[in-house]
């Protein structure tokens, strides 16, 4: 686990990058966070089901979607984890797939509190 963190040195959430992308639009920022909080758990749940049931095609597609979502948000580390998951499921590496899934899950667990911490700022 420690090893992986060293290979993913970026911040959990690159707020600065996202703020630049939205041109400091706080309304848009809130909108994007709302979309994320709605869509991410759903997609992640589907991904989990795909991985546990050995549905490689579904896993590849869903991890691709999550990668796009996370990288647009500036969640660099989680996006990298999703990317790894996509590569593994495309290559059919079933053995390491579950490990990669839990890596993404733990990245998500770090990310969500950061987003929640930002939401009150947005509401102001």
């Amino acid at each position: 686990m420690n090893n992986k963190e060293e290979r993913l040195p970026e911040p959990v959430w690159n707020v600065a990058e996202l703020l630049e992308r939205v041109d400091n639009d706080q309304d848009l920022m809130r909108e994007l966070l709302t979309i994320f909080k709605e869509d991410f758990p759903q997609s992640f749940q589907s991904l989990k089901t795909a991985v546990t049931s050995g549905d490689l095609k579904g896993a590849s597609r869903l991890s691709h979607t999550l990668k796009g979502m996370l990288s647009s948000l500036g969640a660099t580390r989680a996006a990298a984890a999703a990317s790894q998951l996509e590569a593994l499921s495309t290559a059919g590496e079933t053995v390491t797939l579950r490990e990669a899934l839990s890596a993404l899950e733990s990245e998500a667990e770090r990310l969500l509190p950061e987003l929640d911490a930002y939401m009150p700022e947005v509401r102001r």
Binding site: R21, V22, D23, D25, L28, E31, L32, I35, F36, D39, T65, G68, M69, S72, L73
Partner: peptide, 17 residues
């Protein structure tokens, strides 16, 4: 055209601007 809502919205707003 993007099936992922967050990226789509971000792109939409960027181009709208």
């Amino acid at each position: 055209a993007d099936d992922e809502a967050l990226s789509r919205r971000l792109l939409e707003k960027t181009l709208d601007r």
